[in-house]
Amino acid sequence: MSPAARNIALAIAILALATSAFFLQRSQVYLLSLCCVYVMATMGLNLTMGYAGQMSLGQAAFFGIGAYIDAILTTKLGVSFWVVIPIAAVACFFVGLALGFPALRVQHHYLAFATLGFNVLVYLVMRNEEALTGGTFGISNVPRPYLFTWSLDSERAYFWFTLAALVIVAILMRLLLRSPWGRAFAALRDNPIRAESLGINITAYTLLAFAIGAAYGGVGGVFYAGLVQYVEPSTFYFTTSLMMLLAVILGGSGRFFGPVIGTVIVILLPEVLRSSSSPALQFMQKWYLVAFGVALVVLMVWLPGGLLSIGDRRARKAAA
């Protein structure tokens, strides 16, 4: 497919998705919004992991920081949602820099461990600093924003809003990756030594990738808080980071649409399996998580590069 044709197909797909909100039940629309929100965060993680080659187990911490910034600023200080988005993005960017600067010295699996530790610390602060974060009770009644005078209170309106936001951040990501600066990431991941000899400053680039990934997590968090209208610490425990990691790998890390596919599977598949009412699938209500776990193992053994690597596998087979 030519790039132009691909863009048109993509635009049609997005429009179809937006229109589908007319035909779906409210709870299904809500779940679609939930997917969009998580995709923002996993897209950021994909930049860190898939393009810059750094395994992070702390994306839920940035997601949580974004969500709490929104919840605190909108409920306690009455700040507008629109102001919160850049605040959260910038805050997570700098927290990402602060964490990444020492952590990236150690690379590989150690970065994974350091980010995991950071995630648990963030969780503890959310849980214990009651005056600021509401402690274990969290913060409820987080307001949804207005678009000019149009209230985004309904599930459908908020879904369109989130989808539009997702498309915008995805385009930004695309532009970033297409820039010479973004190409350096890939060069880095594929052959760090060669990249270094070409004059790419490895540390600076990975650090930036990590911080931008964190900012994406933060923006996702802001939309999450608006969607669920409630934040509590346990949502942002490191198990959520593992779930996000899962989504990226499952879809295919280092592929632009990898996190999209992966997140849709991780969020929607359990719901589909669970709510299926056909008798053949009834037993799934009890066993769906077992099936999900086993499917994950089988998929990894079969396609270690994620679902989107299926094309490569075919190509390899054909060549062989």
């Binding site: 593992l242 990691l245 899962l246 790998i249 499952l250 998580l289 077992v290 999900f292 776990g293 086993v294 499917a295 994950l296 193992v297 990894m300 053994v301």
Partner: peptide, 9 residues
């Protein structure tokens, strides 16, 4: 990821 799958299952 595979061990995560084992854990969930």
């Amino acid at each position: 990821i595979a061990t995560l799958g084992v854990s969930i299952a």
